[in-house]
């Protein structure tokens, strides 16, 4: 079974919520990425979402844009990111999703990129700028390779699109909890409960909620409605500030641990039961 599916099955059986952490690959370098991944695994992270650096990350806010630039400067090309995933795999079975812009797949060739990713130990892909309408061959190749195709649902996504996306999705559905680019925000969106309920009307897949969740309190709040909480920019921002500090991995893992405690602590119960 795909590691993402296995992990969510495990969480569901225990009545626990999941924590998904995003970082940019190669920020500040690929060895740090490997060490962070292993530390996240120990800290209770359920899925690692690894951003593949791209020159034109138009869905990303400034924090993740800068991470992308640092990744490019560190030589984090797609082949080297996959080497890093393979290196993580030697020590960890943490589920890994690549967060990637479509041109990087397109340039390598869809079939080749997907096969390379599967071989390296990637479990799923989230292609930011590939809508279901353009994804027939992508979908088939992903299924063949046994990778989860993670799809986004946005606040602007109407009912019939949610249904269409849900039919294609595997692993989990990623609900982007606000209109905008990636980034941190002061308060969490108040539409999360209603939207997660709408998504669940179309699928039994777990619903992860992300974009803008920056601290344990917000993560705890979102976890009431979501099956998993995604935290990205708040972690990336810490990596940026710590840079090449010797205790980078320890510090970031400490923050991630506090998020894990917030997401998993206390509140059990199934996501569907608490959505209303």
């Amino acid at each position: 079974m795909n590691r993402i599916e296995a992990r969510f099955q495990h969480l569901r059986a225990r009545g626990q919520k999941g924590l998904i952490i995003y970082i940019g690959a190669g920020d500040p370098d690929l060895e740090a990425t490997r060490q962070l991944a292993l530390a996240f695994d120990r800290a209770g992270v359920d899925v690692l979402e690894l951003g593949v650096p791209f020159s034109d990350p138009l869905a990303d806010g400034l924090v993740n844009q800068l991470a992308s630039q640092r990744g490019l400067a560190a030589g984090a090309t797609p082949p080297r990111v996959l080497e890093t995933v393979a290196a993580i795999r030697r020590d960890s079975q943490i589920p890994i999703v690549l967060y990637v812009y479509f041109n990087l797949l397109h340039r390598r060739g869809l079939g080749e990129f997907i096969a390379d990713a599967a071989r390296a130990g990637v479990d799923g892909l989230l292609v930011l700028d590939l809508p279901p309408e353009e994804a027939d061959s992508y979908q088939a190749l992903m299924r063949e390779a046994g990778l989860c195709a993670i799809w986004l649902v946005a606040p602007t996504t109407p009912e019939e699109r949610i249904a269409r996306i849900a039919r294609r999705a595997s692993g989990f559905i990623y609900y982007v909890s606000r209109e905008g680019v990636t980034g941190m925000q002061e308060r969490v969106s108040d539409t999360i409960a209603a939207m997660t309920a709408r998504i669940r009307a179309h699928t039994a897949l777990p619903v992860a909620v992300g974009f803008g969740i920056s601290n344990p309190d917000q993560a705890r709040l979102v976890a009431r409605h979501a099956d998993a909480v995604v935290v990205g920019s708040a972690v990336v921002d810490r990596i940026a500030r710590l840079g090449r500090a010797p205790d980078l991995v320890e510090q970031v893992a400490g923050f991630v641990q506090s998020l894990a405690a917030a997401v998993k602590g206390g509140e059990g119960g199934s996501g569907a039961g608490t959505a209303g």
Binding site: P131, E133, L152, A154, T156, P158
Partner: peptide
């Protein structure tokens, strides 16, 4: 051609 954008922009 086609339409290659993040989901938030699809409906608009």
């Amino acid at each position: 051609g086609g339409r290659y954008v993040p989901e938030t922009l699809m409906h608009p």
